[in-house]
Design a protein around this nucleic acid. Sequence first.
RNA 1: CGGGGUGUAGCGCAGCCUGGUAGCGCAUCUGCUUUGGGAGCAGAGGGUCGGCAGUUCGAAUCUGUCCACCCCGACCA
Length: 437
Amino acid sequence: MRRSNYFLPTLKENPSEAQIVSHRLMLRAGMIRQAAAGIYSWLPLGCRVLKKIEDIVRHEMDATGAQEILMPTIQPAELWQESGRYDDYGKEMLRINDRHERQLLYGPTHEEVVTDIFRTCVKSYRDLPCNLYQIHWKFRDEVRPRFGVMRGREFFMKDNYSFDLDKVSAVHSYNKMFVAYLRCFARMGLKPIPMRAEAGAIGGDLSHEFIILADTGESEVFCDKKWLDNDPLNIDVNYRSDLQSIVNKWTQFYAATDDKHDPDSCALPDSEIFEGRGIEVGHIFYFGKKYSRAMNATITNADGKEIELEMGSYGIGVSRLVGAIIEANHDSNGIIWPESVAPFRVGIINLRSGDNQCDSACDKLYEELKTVGIEVLYDDRDERAGVKFSDMDLIGVPWQISVGPRNLKNGVVELQRRGQKEIKEEIPVGSILSRFL
RNA sequence: CGGGGUGUAGCGCAGCCUGGUAGCGCAUCUGCUUUGGGAGCAGAGGGUCGGCAGUUCGAAUCUGUCCACCCCGACCA
């Protein structure tokens, strides 16, 4: 992408409405625009990152055997009246009447809709287990939206729903999601910590929330230092085999948020405790028959008996992750994207646009990188070098290639890793491409 | 939903107390000079001062009311 035709409205100054760093940087980097409190438009740069995260999540979900669907954002009130949640959910649910005065709502979650789909379409135990997911918009009318996309009212979320015949199978479905979640967050360059959680409004008796560590996180976290050395990507996963040992391994160490942490009763010595801050980015629930019973979602088992389905639901805040990743990866100059979610992998800075040598060297490099499929942003604007450096740092492109007349005389360009200012490499123009293959 | 705060050009702000018809910086446009970490000079454009209703000869400024947004708390992916 050539910067001169890329819609990227960066800001030099901090918008006054934004307080926390990820919100400020997302506005300054031209990723989002606020339309109303807690409601945002996603501009090209933000959209790219959102889709990168979405793709990682989709890939990991597909690997577990889950199948993607899309359910409506607008739902009929009847389903919620049937489950009993229409009254329970309260003012957080945005309620709408259509022209016929039918009661509708903008979905805050989709247990009711998916249960309705399942009960009418699936009648035999042979079709189980089944896990359906979507990556879609939801709306919760928060009393007080804040922190930009981290706590908006409209948000982009991945939500799965598992259906099983019995509890053993349902727990396996739960464990699959548990492991897949660890992998998702790790692939985004984050340190996930699963914590035993209250099931809250969703209901049920088995639940974990996934917290990622970030210095500027919303809640305080206390955990065993052994967490910091665990890497989920080292797990050799076969989703068909029993996963309980992996889940056990990942829940054996101490971890608690500040409201649950009691220094007096904690068995760990202080020297073993890591004290940090975190952001919740995922939550999984096993809730058994709560909805299948209320909504009469039954199935005939092998013995010809009609039984209620065992269910679970599993959420990842995809749009929240954009903010969370920035909270975990930034410096005073801007965002530092992990490569897996970066909007562009490489940025080319033409230090002297208009200079024939610089222009042609940049053009050539740009075309070469594009040809081999590397996402590259080429700043070809007629701006001063400082403006381009600052902008490229702000939007956090992982690799910066600076092309200027001084170095070009010696046939080299400069390669720099975002976030490691001290390391600058001078590389012959001809061999830069091979660095990215 | 309780408490606090702010609405003036695309962004950041001053002016309001003490009424006299709007200003600064950045950004934008034009020209010249510059060019390796947010350039300099000269010129230009851009505002129903959040909305409505009052007070007044006259309101960004005073009064009332509504709205929007932000912060702290309670609540949450």
